[in-house]
Design a protein around this nucleic acid. Structure first.
Length: 144
DNA sequence: ATATTGACCAGTT
DNA sequence: TAACTGGCCAATA
């Protein structure tokens, strides 16, 4: 049980019913903008009893996880569809419709000040500008 | 004790 | 457009 994983779970538990966040978005919130992959791994390793709504996390295109639990994309789709989220035939959800961003006032509450910031390179400042960038930017089409 | 591997991502070639 | 690169971190080997 690492501090990193626990923080990921804490954030994911905040995602409301029927909404989604991306791996990269969560990493950015934690102050480690490039740790999206590690976020994915944390969810991969989540214990079933941990009560973490993993189905509410998708990739930057809105795509569902191929390696989701034991059931893969199909399982992911079922769990998300159960929350009335629309999913296309190619396992994509519309981020412009369903992506969620926490209110700013929860950030201090979650103690989301940059994690291990001093160990990171300083060229990648973590600030509101960068965070909003990740939601504002239009995503490219999911590659085949 | 070290090396490799992913539910990823953005920038560069 | 597509392929490659480096970065993250915990779990495997």
């Amino acid at each position: 049980m690492s501090e990193f994983n626990d923080k990921v779970y804490e954030i994911v538990r905040r995602i409301p019913y029927g909404r989604v966040m991306t791996y990269g978005q969560i990493a950015a919130l934690m102050g480690i903008p490039r740790a999206a992959r590690a976020v994915g791994w944390a969810l991969h390793a989540v214990a079933p009893e941990a009560q973490v709504p993993c189905q509410r996390v998708v990739n930057r295109y809105g795509g569902l996880a191929a390696g989701y639990g034991w059931g893969g994309q199909l399982a992911h789709r079922l769990e998300l569809a159960a929350e009335a989220v629309e999913i296309s035939d190619d396992f994509i959800v519309d981020l412009s419709k369903y992506q969620w961003w926490p209110e700013e006032n929860v950030l201090p509450e979650l103690q989301l000040s940059p994690y291990k910031r001093d160990e990171l390179d300083r060229n990648l400042p973590v600030n509101e500008e960068r965070l909003s960038y990740s939601t504002r930017r239009s995503k490219p089409k999911m590659p085949r």
